[in-house]
């Protein structure tokens, strides 16, 4: 199909391909819609809700909503920014995130989003949940204190690695990422080169023995806010 779909985002007219999601179409046009559970190339998940936009006045997740002709999307408004700040806050207080001790600091998408939205401390009270660490694997560690349940590892393992190393278990507050083994990660067929390991946006899945190879100060989001790579160049390719 060669036809294009025209829509507006915050008043700017953009074009996309039929079947494309709002988030992807915006990205190709150089408009950044903040996201956490979305990763280009993976099936959209729609769980973090950070990409919430108003579509013809109704809240929708931009990563799962296909574009339609004449669609009117609001992305960068005070109302939506406020909602996104709330969601980012929730993800912080729900887990145990200690940026100052975290190897992912500077490369962490959750931290980077907090900076982008000017959050210096969450407005909600910390929940300090009791979670566990799985360090059984020789090359990889899971620290569930920092997991935001985005499911990027789950989908990467299935869709990219052709494995099924991770999956959600439990419901509600008990929900967590489990591994495909009775006991622990060491008993699975996971490999340190798996896409699932790279897919984690936070410090929940980390590689052993490579910590701080890139020093603080030279990391992805140390100098430029998250999303600026998309905004800087309207021609950034997106899936």
């Amino acid at each position: 199909m060669s036809q294009t779909v025209t829509l507006t985002i915050d008043g700017a007219k953009i074009e996309g391909q039929p079947g494309q999601m709002i988030l992807g179409a915006a990205q190709e046009a150089g408009i950044y819609i903040p996201r956490l559970c979305h990763k280009d190339g993976l099936t959209p998940h729609g769980s973090c809700r950070v990409c919430t936009v108003m579509v013809n006045g109704r809240p929708m997740s931009a990563c799962t909503t296909p574009i339609t002709e004449g669609m009117v999307v609001e992305n960068d408004t005070e109302q939506i920014s406020s909602l996104r700040r709330d969601l980012i806050d929730m993800l912080f207080v729900e887990g145990n995130h200690f940026c100052m001790f975290c190897e992912r600091s500077g490369n962490c998408e959750l931290q980077a989003l907090a900076y982008r939205f000017g959050i210096t401390a969450p407005k909600y009270p910390y929940m300090f949940p009791d979670r566990d660490v799985d360090a059984t694997h020789p090359d990889i560690m899971i620290d569930r204190h920092r997991c935001i349940l985005c499911g990027r590892c789950v989908r990467s393992s299935q869709e990219v690695d052709g494995k099924n190393v991770f999956q959600f278990v439990g419901r509600g507050e008990e929900k967590r990422v489990a591994v495909n083994a009775e006991a622990a990660l060491a008993d699975t067929n996971v490999d340190v080169t798996d896409a699932a390991i790279e897919a984690c946006p936070v410090g929940a899945i980390i590689k052993k023995r490579v910590g701080y190879v890139v020093p603080i100060g030279k990391r992805l989001y140390d100098h430029k806010p998250i999303g600026s790579e998309i905004e800087a160049d309207g021609a950034v390719t997106a899936k």
Binding site: V93, P125, G172
Partner: peptide, 21 residues
């Protein structure tokens, strides 16, 4: 609702607990 939320999305999983607290 805290008990019955499926836990898939952030606002329902976390927000209902915050409301109740």
């Amino acid at each position: 609702f805290v008990e019955e939320s499926c836990g898939y999305c952030t606002p329902c999983r976390v927000g209902n607990r915050l409301l109740m607290d």
